[in-house]
Design a protein around this nucleic acid. Sequence first.
DNA 1: GTGAAAGCGCTAACAT
DNA 2: ATGTTAGCGCTTTCAC
Lengths: 338, 338
Amino acid sequence: MFEPFTLKDIAKALGLSTSTVSRALRDTHEISPETKKLVLDYAQKINYRPNPIALSLKERRSKSIGVSLSEVANQYFAQVVNGIESIAYDRGYHVIITQTHEFYEREKINIQHLASRSVDGLLVSLSAETTDTSYLQNLHQRGLPMVFFDRVTDQINTHQLIANNVKGAFEATEYLIKQGCKRIAHLTSSDHLSISVERLNGYKQALAKHNLPFNEAYIKYCAHGGMFQEETDIAIRELMNLREKPDGIFVASDRLSIGALVVFKDLKIKVPQEMVITGFCNSDVLDLMCPTLTSVRQPAFEMGQLATDMLLNLIESKYPVHDFEKKILDTSLSIRNS
Amino acid sequence: MFEPFTLKDIAKALGLSTSTVSRALRDTHEISPETKKLVLDYAQKINYRPNPIALSLKERRSKSIGVSLSEVANQYFAQVVNGIESIAYDRGYHVIITQTHEFYEREKINIQHLASRSVDGLLVSLSAETTDTSYLQNLHQRGLPMVFFDRVTDQINTHQLIANNVKGAFEATEYLIKQGCKRIAHLTSSDHLSISVERLNGYKQALAKHNLPFNEAYIKYCAHGGMFQEETDIAIRELMNLREKPDGIFVASDRLSIGALVVFKDLKIKVPQEMVITGFCNSDVLDLMCPTLTSVRQPAFEMGQLATDMLLNLIESKYPVHDFEKKILDTSLSIRNS
DNA sequence: GTGAAAGCGCTAACAT
DNA sequence: ATGTTAGCGCTTTCAC
């Protein structure tokens, strides 16, 4: 059985009281130099570490933050996590990552556990399934600081951090138009996600600007964001069965972009000759793929950093914060002509 | 300030003692049905959750396990994590993931913190930099259960779970030989990692079987496993500057495999015409790449599951375990002829 | 300068 | 059937 050393162990060994030991370790002025040295040396020797669980219980904070995201296998999120950790560690916080795999139930369980586990705050990117955020509202009302990133909700009044999805989608779509595409489809995640709404918006704006008609039949939603390849498969086959087949497609996410490439390969549809693709995608191996796609890249690492900074400021704020901001970061278009 | 509800809140609201409430919630037989219902209803209403921190402190275990790995952006590890979570959640444990990014110092800090944070056990895959495992030995001696996977060490007597690296490397190398390669290079991670040693071994065995000479100049180590692309870049350029350039290369890991493809692309070296590549790689987009490589796939998800199963059995074992096993899982060769 | 004791949220042994 | 109390490891008054 693993039994870390405690203050009591030190106190007993040295014939002191636990409070003296505690003070010696935290270098209070009211402890004599000799006692201090005695305690510190011994603590050093047995490699004493204070029990953070006990500390958490006492101080009612854990110096840790919880993160809820879809899945770390997604490059975008992996990069965000690196950004989060880089800031959190610098400021003395630990990071607990949980994955929803796009399921509402998983998300709810994870977040409830994080909250009761006394994380000091939450970084949340909603799952594709999530429509009901009442359990989050509950936690937020009761004072748990949280910052939303990427997939956000307006139902909770707090900081939000997103990429400029409208502009990114606009540019991606306009790129297709400039490539000569006339019938542009849009493959996206579940329709209630903020990113889906915004990206659809940018798509529509680009069509409008260039006087192309908007056609509902060209919009395909994947309820789980392509977590199951079947979703992507069906969506694209339906598109390709239309009488007026699309000649270009704007894809709304990392997973869907990769999934789409797989399907087109299966269907032996030539990219970009028969179908030009652009997509939101932070994969760092797009340059190695062929066919490949022109991608909208989000500043994922910076998003992780900024979101964490915002959250830690909330957590450490002396006064209740009422002034929340919605920060929007620019995307960049990486043009790839396979 | 976020203040979750406590037993005391319920007790006060209902005019009961905390112990009665506690017992009611855990459904002890000695509580009257009426009281039980009263308490349960109220707890339900305010959405009460027991404070796991307090529970941990009391029971001296946290029902959580810690994981230390290189980085989740690596597909292999992302898949392992999914395996770990699938088992851990089923058995009521939570998972805390930490990334080393191949740095020894980061690993040590992470693991020390996990230990003092009262995780009940540890799943460890060593960083490329790690040679000194004394801090782990320390924790292990003091009774912290741990299981090593992938990058293991024999300095600590506990369960180990690895892929059949020797056989995988053998097959990968033999594949190159069968493709007609005569001068086969080997690009690998830092030389003290268990996986490096084993994969080098398989490589040598394949050469020997086919009567090809072993040439030290063809072996290139990357101290940080290609975390910095520069490592990979230099290694390959050195290989290509040899008088007798290699005509095939066996790469030892996910990150290095991708990195190598990038370098060959930069150098405009035709794959597979001028250079055939095989590599350990669990990326799921290899099929979309061209040029691509024949890959040795590890059963990552199963490795995560098995390692977790082994760890939880250690943790929950009534008696001290002295009988440790080294489990070896088969790899599979995915042949891709770009 | 040091010790005793209370309290953070919870459970369990011990009353009643 | 319910209440009281001690204790998990730690910090922090309050005494001396």
